[in-house]
Measured scan of single mutants.
Amino acid sequence: TSEDEWQCTECKKFNSPSKRYCFRCWALRKD
């Protein structure tokens, strides 16, 4: 669900929880 998505701190895109990197800008997920 969208509620589980995380928001990239670099480009603000919301990504799948299973992705460690942002799909748009490839920044590593910040915990």
Rank of each mutant, 00 (worst) to 15 (best):
C22E: 00
D4F: 07
K12C: 04
E3M: 05
T1P: 01
E3V: 05
R20A: 15
R24G: 11
W26R: 15
P17K: 02
C25Q: 01
Y21D: 13
A27K: 08
E3L: 04
R29P: 11
W6M: 04
E5Q: 10
D4R: 05
T1S: 04
E5L: 09
N15I: 11
K13I: 07
C8Y: 00
P17G: 09
S2E: 08
S2V: 06
T1C: 02
F23I: 12
F23H: 13
W6H: 07
F14W: 09
W6F: 10
K30L: 06
L28H: 03
W6R: 13
W6P: 07
N15K: 06
F14E: 12
W26M: 15
S2Q: 15
Q7C: 02
C22L: 00
W26L: 13
A27C: 03
D31H: 05
D31N: 06
F23G: 10
F23M: 02
C25P: 01
S16D: 13
E10P: 01
E10H: 13
F14V: 13
N15G: 06
Y21F: 13
K12I: 04
C22D: 01
T9G: 05
Q7F: 10
D31G: 06
C8M: 01
K19A: 14
T9W: 03
T1K: 00
C8Q: 03
E3F: 03
P17I: 01
D31P: 14
E5R: 06
T1E: 05
L28K: 14
C25G: 00
Q7E: 11
R29K: 08
T1G: 05
P17Y: 08
F14A: 07
D4G: 05
W6L: 09
D4H: 04
R20Y: 14
D4Q: 06
K12T: 12
C8T: 00
F14K: 08
R24F: 11
T9D: 09
C11S: 01
S2C: 07
Y21L: 10
D4I: 11
C25R: 00
T9I: 05
F14M: 09
C8A: 01
E3A: 05
K30D: 14
F23Y: 12
S18W: 02
C22F: 02
Y21N: 15
S16E: 10
C11M: 00
C8F: 02
Q7I: 08
E10C: 09
C11I: 00
W6A: 08
R29I: 04
R20H: 14
K13H: 10
C11E: 02
W26A: 15
C25N: 01
S2Y: 07
E10R: 05
K12D: 06
S18D: 08
N15C: 07
T9K: 05
R20E: 15
R20S: 14
K30E: 14
W26F: 11
C11N: 02
C25F: 00
S2W: 07
S16R: 03
W26V: 11
K12E: 15
S16G: 13
R24W: 14
Q7H: 02
C8D: 01
S18E: 11
W6Q: 14
W26H: 15
P17Q: 08
D31Q: 12
E3P: 08
F14H: 11
S18G: 08
S18M: 05
E3H: 04
Y21S: 12
K19L: 09
Y21A: 14
C8I: 02
R29L: 07
S16H: 13
W6T: 09
C8G: 00
Y21T: 12
A27G: 13
K12H: 03
D31S: 08
C8H: 02
W6V: 06
C22P: 02
E5Y: 09
L28A: 12
P17A: 13
Q7R: 04
W26D: 15
C11R: 03
T1N: 06
S18I: 02
P17N: 01
A27W: 02
K30P: 14
T1Q: 02
N15Y: 05
D31V: 05
A27S: 10
E10Y: 12
Q7L: 04
S18K: 15
R20K: 14
T9M: 09
K30Y: 08
W6D: 04
C11P: 01
R20D: 10
R20I: 14
S16T: 09
T9L: 04
E5V: 08
E10T: 09
R29N: 12
W26E: 15
K30W: 03
K12P: 07
C25K: 01
